[in-house]
């Protein structure tokens, strides 16, 4: 395997590590830090793929990833955190070892699912598809097992990271227009979530989404 392929695989493994770290993290602030690291790793993986394959649009998407996921989004999330004064631990629906065990099962599922797909892909980074898929599923698991809206949003953003990585590893990235569109969506989405946080707290005095079950038509 080429050196670039090995480096991408290494970064992919680190991405998976960060996904698990997020799963086992209790504090929202550290969750945002981990999300930032995940973004940086993603940008690095894209950059290595770009250098190795000479696909010029991958340079733009790496730059876009740095700007959006390493700088802007964590900045917004931290700001929201500060304004909401959320420093307490996240409430979990199931305890962390169980979550991690479910996570391992998901990784096995993702790896098995990825094998036939990645055999069709002709890219240098195809081995990483299983990991990308696992990252998506782990982020999904995180959204399910967290109660607080903010942790769920970080899970959502991390899921988008996983999808982006899957696209890069199988097809050297989506067309530029699609990528720009998704980037804009994520940015606007985060703004909207930010507004929602304040509305949710105004209505329920808490960011606990289990309160939503009590919503009634009046």
């Amino acid at each position: 395997m080429s050196l670039a392929g090995q480096i991408v695989n290494l970064i992919a493994a680190l991405l998976l590590l960060v996904s698990f770290a997020m799963l086992s993290q209790r504090r929202v602030r550290d969750l945002v830090d981990l999300f930032m690291i995940q973004g940086a790793l993603l940008a690095a993986a894209t950059l290595v793929t770009a250098v190795a394959t000479g696909q010029s649009h991958l340079y733009y998407s790496a730059a876009l990833t740095v700007a959006l996921k390493v700088i802007v989004l964590p900045l917004i999330l931290r700001r929201v955190l500060r304004r909401l004064a959320l420093e307490t631990d996240v409430e979990l629906l199931i305890n962390i070892p169980t979550t991690m065990l479910v996570g391992i099962a998901l990784v096995v599922v993702a790896f098995n699912m990825a094998v036939p797909i990645s055999q069709l892909a002709g890219t240098i980074t195809r081995g990483a598809l299983g990991i990308a898929l696992a990252c998506v599923l782990l982020a999904f698991l995180m959204m399910i097992t967290r109660r607080k809206a903010l942790a769920q949003v970080v899970g959502f953003l991390s899921m988008e990271n996983g999808l982006f990585f899957a696209a890069t590893s199988v097809t050297y990235g989506m067309p530029m227009v699609v990528e720009l569109g998704i980037a804009l969506d994520v940015l606007v989405g985060t703004f909207v979530f930010g507004v929602f946080f304040f509305r949710i707290r105004e209505t329920f005095d808490s960011l606990d989404t289990s309160h939503f079950e009590k919503l009634k038509d009046r």
């Binding site: 695989n9 992919a12 698990f20 790896f111 081995g127």
Partner: peptide, 9 residues
């Protein structure tokens, strides 16, 4: 996870 990743990659 390390063992799993090794088997995959």
């Amino acid at each position: 996870l390390g063992v799993l990743t090794h088997l995959l990659l």
